[in-house]
């Protein structure tokens, strides 16, 4: 068990290392990499010597460019390990980490709420559909779920925008005022723990949250329906019924716990998708989160900011993966055995 977790932990660190290295290779070692390009540009545009241009690049990228490449690599690794991604190129003097710290909570808030809502609703609906497989509405709900799971999230966002922010339904105004469709909060509220601000934040976040929710909802419904259906058919659930247990006991202790197992591991994977989608969603709603920031950094070729955000995104996903694995071990006592079987097979 401990060995299993250590293995997973090592895998997590390895993944982060791979991404870090990938970024280093992209920035420093590819032909015509941004550092070399910057130096050439400085030399051509300002007519300065190579030495001076290198010096400028050095302070900009916070790399010791005259050191051998492996030393640069090592110092890059240690910087990353200390969460030091240097300073933003576009807003000089501002730490990348402080930009991330300012933007990340907004993305975590919307993505987290969306994922949580979709999870809770999806799991409940999915389990219900599994039990009502013989009713007429089951194919309708399942069909809608597979429709939702197929549509790209940004198209869902467009539909939601049309429904909530464009059509007026003869009322003369839209459901959500147009001013609340963009940005994180309105100009007139003071940030802090006051009701006006919180309501305003919720209103601004509503459409992104709904988008994330709907884009994941279908998958949760389908997964949970499948998982519950197969759990319902297992001998232990059938026997539990024959043993005369109360329906509530069966649902919670027998069906629920077992049906949730395969879903839990899916949670982390979904998070990866949803974070990937946040780039487009935040662009659509001009929501100042980390996805939009990554996009701006990419468009402005702000390499330190790009690498910082991308690493944080990857780390978040990998960390969630790891947490899901731990949760899985806690929920399923068979994990040790399964491992063994897999290794032998």
């Amino acid at each position: 068990m401990v060995a299993y977790l250590v293995k997973k932990l090592l895998k997590m660190l390895f993944t982060i290392w791979v991404v870090t290295t990938l970024i280093f290779v992209l920035i420093r070692m590819m032909p015509s990499n941004p550092v070399d390009r910057y130096i050439e540009e400085q030399m051509v545009v300002y007519g300065i010597g190579y030495e001076e241009a290198t010096l400028r690049a050095q302070s900009l990228f916070s790399m010791e460019l005259d050191e051998p490449i492996w030393k640069q690599y090592l110092s890059f690794l240690s910087d990353v390990a200390n969460f030091d991604f240097g300073q933003s190129l576009l807003s000089p003097g501002v730490d990348v980490m402080s930009i991330i710290a300012a933007r990340l909570p907004w993305t975590l808030f919307t993505v987290g709420m969306g994922l949580l809502l979709s999870f809770i609703i999806g799991i409940s609906v999915g389990a219900l559909m599994a039990m009502k497989r013989d009713r007429w509405y089951e194919p309708v709900v399942s069909g809608f779920a597979s429709f939702l799971s197929a549509i790209p999230d940004f198209l869902i966002a467009i539909f939601l925008l049309l429904i909530f922010g464009v059509f007026t339904y003869g009322m003369g105004h839209t459901i959500i005022p147009i001013t609340s469709l963009r940005g994180n909060y309105s100009m007139f509220v003071t940030p802090g723990w006051n009701a006006g601000f919180i309501l305003d934040v919720l209103l601004h976040g509503l459409l992104p949250i709904l988008t994330y929710m709907f884009s994941q909802l279908g998958i949760w419904i389908l997964l949970m329906k499948g998982s519950t259906t197969s759990t319902l058919n297992t001998d232990y659930v059938q026997i539990a019924k024959v043993r005369g247990l109360r329906q509530s006991t069966i649902l919670v202790n027998y069906v629920g716990r077992n049906a949730m197992l395969p879903i839990v591991t899916e949670f982390a994977m979904r998070l990866g998708f949803i974070i990937g989608g946040s780039l487009i969603i935040e662009q659509l709603f001009v929501y100042q989160g980390i996805g939009l920031e990554l996009l701006n950094a990419t468009n402005g070729r702000d390499y330190p900011l790009m690498q910082g955000i991308f690493l944080i995104m990857t780390s978040a996903i990998v960390l969630c993966n790891f947490l899901a694995e731990i949760l899985y071990v806690v929920l399923d006592p068979r994990i040790k055995l399964k491992k063994k079987v897999r290794e032998n097979g």
Binding site: T234, D235, Y236, I239, V242, N258, D332, P333, R334
Partner: peptide, 13 residues
Amino acid sequence: MMFQASQSSFNPV
């Protein structure tokens, strides 16, 4: 009632 293959008659978790 006992089913065939009652190997899986117990809640695995």
